[in-house]
Amino acid sequence: MAVVEAAPTLVSGTGEERSRSWLRALELIVPGAVLLLVVGACFVGPLVLPVPSPVGGNILESNLPAFSAGHLLGTDPNGNDVLARILHGGQSSLTIAIAVNLLGLLAGGTLGALSGYAGGVLDSVIMRVLDVLIAFPSLVLTLAVAQSLGPSQTNTILALAFFSVPAFARISRAATLRLREQPFMVAARLCGTRGWRVLLRHLAPNIMPQLITFGMLGMGIIIVIEGALSFLGLGIPPPAPSWGNMIAQGQASLSATPILVVWPCVALFITVLAFNLLGETLRARWSGR
């Protein structure tokens, strides 16, 4: 019968009803604006705002309360300006997170796409290796590596990127497997398009959204882990500021000046929350039609 076809009618699969479109737009705009603000404040703020140096503070100006002259958020026990440390700390957190996710996305994305597209032995080998990496207690080994290589920004980036590869690879592989049998992919192959060209021109643009969405959620995760490393003294080495080592430093005087822990915690929380909200919104958009 040409006219009619059997399909579930309107009732099934309506999914969660979304509220009006401007509310939906807010889901993207609010976390996006917060992130822009955070990134702008951390990277541009120290250049244009009158904030003092984050290190080498005067010990005579230690532990000033918030709203002191010249120190909006006060100073820490070493007399360093807290606001300046927050902004510079955010700079290194964000730099690390962006670098780690870019490396992970490129390496993992390529590996997963190759694995899913090629299939066969290559696929099995790559997947088994990734299984090992996934089973690995990554934070634990990162700690060991970071300690022995000496804590530094580059080492932290490399160690974290190494362990973020499997997650990206899995997502990329799953997306590739779904796409592989799609008519346009088959058509591209039948037209004699070379393998790498199919990967680059047809596959990459289609799996990118999913990888970027995961990258957003990954930003939050990496910022938290980097904070953990610094907190344990294995990330950014003091006196250079980072949110993690500021929290660790504040912990020492938790009962006397709890506010020193609060500032970096708030900065960390807001940034991670914004990344998570943005990632969740993107994910909901991509999965729900």
Binding site: G227, A228, I247, F269, V272, N276
Partner: peptide
Amino acid sequence: LSVANYVLALL
């Protein structure tokens, strides 16, 4: 989900 566990621990 956006609160790091060490932040929560200190809190």
